[in-house]
Design a protein around this nucleic acid. Structure first.
Lengths: 338, 338
DNA sequence: AACAGTAACGAACACGTTTTCGTAACTGTG
DNA sequence: CACAGTTACGAAAACGTGTTCGTTACTGTT
């Protein structure tokens, strides 16, 4: 391990000067800086993060907190996309990432303690139970945090625009001539609330009356519950002509149920998903869906988190809405040409 | 931040004694240890990882290296499963994990340099191009490493038993009366080689002659290439009665193609996948597949990596084969009852 | 020439641990 | 009681940085 001291010996400048030169201090002459940087490169110097962190109380390390129960976090393409993009941008900005958990070794630790323990400069929070006191503790702590898809006071939130997403889907379905639109929604979260709001707003604006039995509750990422809801919808005396699913993956449950009823998509029944995962684009018929911009979500989260760390004094919490994109596939029948 | 010094002042023992007591040194009396641990708990003491790491040259941090191009790493359920399990076991053993990359900030860094920079006690390597010199450099360095699904000299490897997997699938298909079995395999990796070996071994043992045109090359996780291969197979003068796919997800491409030929699964054509991802179990008909034990893979990887770190002097590299499980769905027709 | 001002560098300390070594008190043995 | 051996603890150094505060030497002004 080559240290700052080795460089100091090699080129005759003191360790203080070397340290300053490597940190681009204006205090040091240009020529000396050049010499020092050159020998550092030659000797293969790598700064000792531990020593640096000990001295500066910063780690260039960002925490990622997401729920890991049932392994649903990483395996959900939406979150894995967001986290991956977060990672790429964080690394570009010079930060590594560490997962925050509540048990490390045999110690039971709060999320906050773990973040302190690992000296995270900031933490991004996604896909968790936002009512969990441990999560709230972390958010209200002195550690900069950014949440994804949930709004907290005094904390920057990066939000996928679910209201517009649901609205755009309804409008698309409406334009294709449908008036009987059912909506199977996920469990009761702020995301779901926004989508429901968008759905009703669009329907109201378009003059569509939605009977209560067209609104069904299911769970995200769970084809079984969506399948059950689909069955109930198809068995209604006056079934819908189009069904909106909680997400692309859940639609698989609906697909099975529709096939079981000997119906075909989109000729007998139209459907749309949500998310725009890989799967949605390889199914036939191709699924019409609303693509969430996971790349932008992760990138913005990293960018704002770092900004809030660097400008800790002046930074003001913001809410960043990330637009998505309507992806029109072949799963909604155009009734206008009948 | 409460430090060891604060504890020292509070309970009258020197910092050396406090440090030793907190590290369970036998040098310190039981009573004193109890007192010190108690006050540490009361004061909410958390060890300063930076200081500790600086002194001991260990970080209690494990690196995870997997390729991130095309975001295919995290979004592939197989790898996300392995990594998640790795994370859980690593945390149980007192380690955090950090992703290893080759560009951090504006510095371009080798994987090895990044691992040194972050003071990783060890690194697990998965889902990368194992011929990449940067990967080889890391594996041959002094940093303990464990590879997943690839064998290197002098490096512990955790391997999903792909040979048995392919063999078991063939046997299952054979038992159901099929004699014309096609195999669409993924790109040329050691995993693919093992599966091909298993396939041919089983066919030989069962006395099945496999015509060359029944073996098709496609890509993993790519329904399009599997769809093309499927088309070619279905258009053969003497088409197979069962098709084996590179993985469950790729099968979607085959599914579309089969439907396009107005054939139904499994009545007209039988299929099996590989992996046992969530999707395979919610499709109808349920996909027969070979479930890879991602949980065991990740857990064993973490356990052996930590073991090789702790017993650095005496540890000998091993190869650990992880068995999978045949999951029989409804996608293979039983021809014995005709 | 005297002076203030600045530019460029070094000495020394501190960050919070772990660890080596020394020392005092205690224990048991003859 | 003398002695060796053990137990329990403390003093001090070290890990590799960043930073504060001096200290030179040089520049330009009057």
């Amino acid at each position: 391990m080559v240290t700052i001291k080795d460089i100091s010996k090699r080129c005759g400048f003191s360790t203080s000067t070397v340290s300053k030169a490597l940190n681009n201090s204006l205090e040091i002459g240009q020529e000396t800086t050049a010499i020092i940087r050159k020998t550092a490169l030659e000797m293969g110097y790598l700064p000792n993060t531990a020593a640096r962190s000990l001295k500066t109380n910063r780690s260039n390390n960002l925490g990622v907190l997401f729920i890991d129960e049932m392994q649903s976090g990483l395996s959900h393409e939406y979150f894995s996309g967001v986290i991956n993009s977060f990672k790429v941008e964080a690394e570009r900005l010079g930060y590594d990432i560490t997962f925050i958990s509540h048990n490390i070794g045999n110690m039971q630790m709060s999320y906050y303690d773990h973040s302190v323990y690992r000296k995270c400069d900031g933490v991004v929070i996604a896909c968790v139970d936002f009512s969990d006191p441990a999560v709230v503790e972390l958010i209200h702590s002195e550690i900069p945090t950014v949440t994804i898809d949930h709004i907290f006071n005094d904390c920057t939130a990066i939000l996928s625009d679910n209201l517009t997403g649901a609205k755009d889907l309804v409008h698309h379905i409406y334009e294709y001539g449908h008036r009987k639109i059912a909506f199977i929604h996920g469990e009761n979260t702020s995301v779901t609330k926004r989508r429901l709001a968008g759905f009703h707003k669009a329907c109201d604006a378009l003059g569509i009356k939605v009977p209560d039995e067209y609104i069904k509750a299911a769970r995200y990422h769970d084809p079984r519950s969506s399948g059950l809801a689909t069955r109930e919808l198809l068995n209604l005396p006056d079934p819908p002509t189009c069904i909106m699913y909680p997400d692309d993956f859940s639609f698989i449950g609906g697909m099975n149920e529709i096939e079981k009823h000997s119906l075909t998509i989109p000729d007998d029944i139209s459907v749309v998903g949500y998310d725009g995962i890989y799967l949605s684009q390889v199914l036939r018929p191709k699924l019409s869906t609303f693509k969430q911009n996971t790349e932008a979500l992760g990138k913005e989260a990293a960018a704002h988190l770092v900004e809030s760390i660097v400008d800790k004094k002046t930074y003001l919490p913001k809410q960043i809405w990330i637009a998505g994109e309507l992806w029109i596939g072949d799963s909604v029948k155009n009734l206008n040409f009948e």
